[in-house]
Design a protein around this nucleic acid. Sequence first.
DNA 1: CGGTGCATGTAAATCGTTACATGATTCA
DNA 2: TGAATCATGTAACGATTTACATGCACCG
Lengths: 212, 212
Amino acid sequence: MKIGNEDRMNTLGYAILSVLGRKPCSGYQLASYLELLWPAKHSQIYPLLSKMEQNGLLVFEHVEQTGKPDKKIYSITEKGREALGTWVTTEEPGYPIIRDEFLIKMYSMWTTDENNAKKLIQDRISKLKLKVTLREKKIAKVENEQVETVSEHFGRYVLLHRSNLLDNEEISWCHWVLKLIENSNVIKLLLGIISAGAFNKIVQGVTFFSEL
Amino acid sequence: MKIGNEDRMNTLGYAILSVLGRKPCSGYQLASYLELLWPAKHSQIYPLLSKMEQNGLLVFEHVEQTGKPDKKIYSITEKGREALGTWVTTEEPGYPIIRDEFLIKMYSMWTTDENNAKKLIQDRISKLKLKVTLREKKIAKVENEQVETVSEHFGRYVLLHRSNLLDNEEISWCHWVLKLIENSNVIKLLLGIISAGAFNKIVQGVTFFSEL
DNA sequence: CGGTGCATGTAAATCGTTACATGATTCA
DNA sequence: TGAATCATGTAACGATTTACATGCACCG
């Protein structure tokens, strides 16, 4: 009958509770819903689901399917809802962690030539545009859905918007960097006819530090 | 005399090479520079530095200090520079990984009341504003520095800008969400005098889905 | 025929955090 | 006096990824 339990969960556990709080689903579906919140591989999700079920935070029912493999549909319990609620309101959210190899490559751009650098950025733009388009479809889907209550969809809706705003902003930034690179090229052409000191001044003042 | 070595490095290794490529520094300093690129604790950095040094990607020199503890200043070697260059140009950058507890809490906002939700968002805004201010100082510092060559500072400069653009965009998003919450409150006040069905329609149409 | 989606699991390896250790200096 | 900065390391634990395992259905 104890409510406060000794087996404290990791963040992934709360992410799972969040998704399951909106609607019951299988571990497989969970994996795709978690992408937006806390990305995880199925090898991490399945064992955790079992553990959480044993701790009474979740329950599941077997669903037999024809043609497709059987599945387990997990739902959140009252205990799970409580645990989630407490975590959301009491705990301070941890610092966001961003690990992006692209940033390292940007930082090290000077090791390569302009063409490589440009390609890197253009690829980034393509990928971002793709993600934005996919998300726009998801947003449209949420907007057209007949929702029972708004509150359950609010979080997802608002987060999809956030991602698209940020990705679009990054696309703008990419274009800005491309311009900087191109302009610095023009100036390098002058290098043959001007001094190195003057070159640095021009690059710093005009190309590098002024926002075009 | 082999160049292609069997001990391939992880991303942190390349992040270290990137920073060290710009200027030699100690493991301690490295930790703070890495925040922008690939955050890591010193307990991960120090052993990796040793390993990379043994593999000939780095060299270090002891620097004795008075008052402060002695330190090791690491520099990148030609081999290290090559390894970095190859990685930057050949390997496709891996997908960015973002883990942010705030997003989970946003998603689960419906488990709590408006005041908790608002507080969560306002705290986020404060933290973001603080980060932006700190970064602005760093940007100013780079801009005022007497740089030898632009290229070595280009990456850092451009990344600091990126972070601030994105954080500012997120601040705007936060305000947008706050407005949505406040407006939905106003509508809830009407709930006493209108039907539940009509309520849902209003919330969906006016507050939830229209971008104010 | 080959890839993708559906569906669930385990084992091994790697990556990353927290805790353990030490110690002088400076600022409030 | 207590916290923060400088400075480097190791050990234990927890989190995450990659690889191993299976199998049917559908599409091109």
